[in-house]
């Protein structure tokens, strides 16, 4: 790891100022991904601005939305009563991610800033356009079992690794930021981006912009929800495929639905077409299967991940079944 400068800040403004003053500076909160990447020389910030002292840990109802501070820990959010009662899908997704220790360190903002776990990104001896633009995509013709099937480009087929973000994109969250140009609100579905020609950019944050909160509008998805994560072992592994499913069912008819997938794209993958196919239909396996088939339209697979064409829809069907009949 290179040597770097380290400063602590206690207000968003001071943090933005501190990071703006230096080239190649980064905010650090939990550090669970950044420190890992720095150890492996994948990221080499010359200055770290510690934001942990900024009071952004609150989780509260504000009018018709729940506002979660960017520095709330993943474990605090998952175990929070308000979240468990009104946003159970978010709580489930958080508990499906990482380990108890990491959830005790990782923040909501940091979780959103997680970088891909692509094997080629993680090895500086390998080509990777995300790590080193122009070096090529190692995964395209390589070992791509864990890789994307939606929204890929010739430059990058990596997937976004978060579980929390899959629930947040399904729940129509908004990201609140502050930066040199003041405060911004970004719809969650527009926060992360597809790789296109610039896979080095994971998201649409502007330079030196700091995430301060996530807002989730009140919704009717308090009971019939399920986050289903398929992985290569029973816990503590990244998703091969995951599905966040939320249904609002009345008299066995689906009044409203939210559906998103993880492990399939460079960004949390919202399935709006499939949602439309669910609304107004009976909560049956046939409805679910139909939606799942719609969800997979436009998928493009690679040498080792073709199975996602089958595992994906099956996981959607099962997540919807579990949501419809929670245990």
């Amino acid at each position: 790891m290179i040597q770097f400068q380290y400063v602590r800040t206690s207000t968003p403004k001071a943090a933005v100022d501190a990071v703006s003053k230096a080239q190649n500076a980064r905010f650090i909160a939990g550090g669970t991904n950044l420190v890992d990447l720095m150890k492996r020389d994948i990221m080499k910030p010359e200055k770290l601005v510690d934001i942990n002292n900024i009071p952004l840990k609150g989780i509260e109802q504000q009018g018709n939305k729940i506002v979660i501070g960017a520095l709330a820990l993943n474990s605090q959010v998952a175990d929070n009563k308000l979240v468990q009662e009104k946003l159970p899908l978010l709580s489930q997704s958080l508990n499906a991610g990482a380990s108890a220790q990491i959830r005790n360190m990782a923040t909501v903002g940091g979780n959103m800033m997680q970088r891909t776990r692509c094997n080629y990104f993680y090895d500086t001896a390998m080509p990777c356009n995300k790590r080193e633009p122009g070096s090529g995509c190692g995964a395209l013709e390589g070992f791509n079992r864990m890789h994307a099937i939606f929204g890929t480009s010739e430059k990058c087929i990596a997937v976004h690794p978060s579980d929390m973000c899959i629930a947040l994109v399904a729940l129509d969250a908004t990201v609140v930021t502050t930066g040199p140009k003041g405060e911004r609100r970004i719809p969650f579905s527009e926060f992360h981006r597809l790789p296109g020609d610039n896979p080095e950019k994971d998201n649409n944050l502007m330079e030196n912009e700091l995430i301060t909160a996530v807002e989730i509008p009140d919704n009717a998805f308090t009971r019939n929800v399920h986050y289903l994560k398929i992985r290569d072992r029973a816990s503590y592994a990244f998703a091969v495929v995951s599905v966040a499913a939320a249904l609002h069912i009345e008299n066995n008819t689906i009044k409203d639905a939210r559906l998103a997938m993880g492990g399939v794209s460079h960004k949390p993958w919202r399935l709006t077409g499939a949602e439309k196919a669910l609304i107004g239909k009976p909560a049956s396996e046939e409805t679910f299967r139909n939606a799942a088939n719609i969800a997979m339209e436009g998928a493009k697979t690679f040498k080792y991940n073709a199975f996602k064409l089958k595992l994906g829809p099956n996981t959607i069907v099962q997540a919807l079944k579990n949501a419809a009949e929670p245990v």
């Binding site: 939990g30 550090g31 669970t32 220790q101 360190m105």
Partner: peptide, 8 residues
């Protein structure tokens, strides 16, 4: 409980 390896 936290991981001391990922913590500066």
């Amino acid at each position: 409980r936290v991981l001391s390896c990922l913590s500066l």
